[in-house]
Design a protein around this nucleic acid. Sequence first.
DNA 1: TACTGTGAAACGGTTCACAGCC
DNA 2: GGCTGTGAACCGTTTCACAGTA
Lengths: 207, 207
Amino acid sequence: MKRIPQRTIDRVLIYIRTLEHLIKEKRHLISSGELSRITGISDVQIRKDVSRFGRVGTPRIGYEIEELNRTFKDYLLQKDTVKVVLFGVGNLGTAILKYPGFSKNRINIVAAFEKSSAKVNKNINGVKVYSVDKAPRIIKRIKADLGIIAVPENASQEVADIMVLSGLKGIVNFSPTSISFPKNVTVKDIDFSLEFLSLLCNIQHRK
Amino acid sequence: MKRIPQRTIDRVLIYIRTLEHLIKEKRHLISSGELSRITGISDVQIRKDVSRFGRVGTPRIGYEIEELNRTFKDYLLQKDTVKVVLFGVGNLGTAILKYPGFSKNRINIVAAFEKSSAKVNKNINGVKVYSVDKAPRIIKRIKADLGIIAVPENASQEVADIMVLSGLKGIVNFSPTSISFPKNVTVKDIDFSLEFLSLLCNIQHRK
DNA sequence: TACTGTGAAACGGTTCACAGCC
DNA sequence: GGCTGTGAACCGTTTCACAGTA
């Protein structure tokens, strides 16, 4: 199959999330129109996305939910579990450690790292907190996939460097600053302030 | 000035964030090339974005940082402060209440709402926690701009309905589910699991 | 009739190539 | 030479319009 663009992947992840809700409700069939109403994504867009996977729905009937979900997941979510490490066990870091949604998506936070010695060696929600200087060794040993930056702004670049050095190829950066990194590493920035301001501009600038 | 597309707005918010860092470091001038190196956004893109605001840099020299920053902010950030209300004072909700980055962006969380009576009437980081049924009255009185959904998945639609009823026009939804809402309301979804899975697919699917 | 599936058109955004300027 | 500024080309995505089907 041809390479799937990131935009499409992000939509498909929403389809998967929705289909799994429906499966829990024992639903079996869904049309592109109904999926559109639930997700807010247009029905044509949904059919285009589905057809990319070669999947065939039944005219007049719609798509078989289980089958569609399996097709998406087989293609996108090859790894059975994702191993993630967290840097920074402050308020946000702790909330992430306790976030209830990860387990159902097979996302496992396997270790946390902290500078402040008061938190080191604690155990939060079953995750051990280590001193930052142990990070490279531990990350290589457990072969983590992704890393999370949840440290204060002024420490984020330093922490990012350690993550790159440890061989992580993907980073989710919650700190409100641009970090530099080699181009074989992929970074996703989530800056809460920017999300709010973006939404606000969005509202104000629509006539 | 013509309507500015959302993509551009999101980039400009990053420019503002960066320029303010530079101002703190007493820098005065910056070229599109250097701004590109910091932010990861291409230099041509930056010049295109800047030119949309009619701003003129000096060839050979670059842009005057203070001036550029002011131009962006004057256009985008008209409100002096943004009033936000929070629904759900669990782990994530509490982390948001204590998030240190909001104040410098003039984002104020002005009230929080919780179902569980154990938390009602508490005060977290200077923000009063009210019972959910008080929400419509309080939100209208204080004229809040945006609302945050940080309640468990199964309560998110119910809470969203209350927010719409209270007149909020923008919602940041941290719950991992699609919510339905009238089209005069703008919603921004932040689903942590999806962000991680998206990043992972991104890494795996690049050749 | 009520749906899926899809080529073609329209749209929007990014990159290119280069003119202009100090 | 090193920077800004920008029309034009390019590219990817979304929407349109409609053919196909049970």
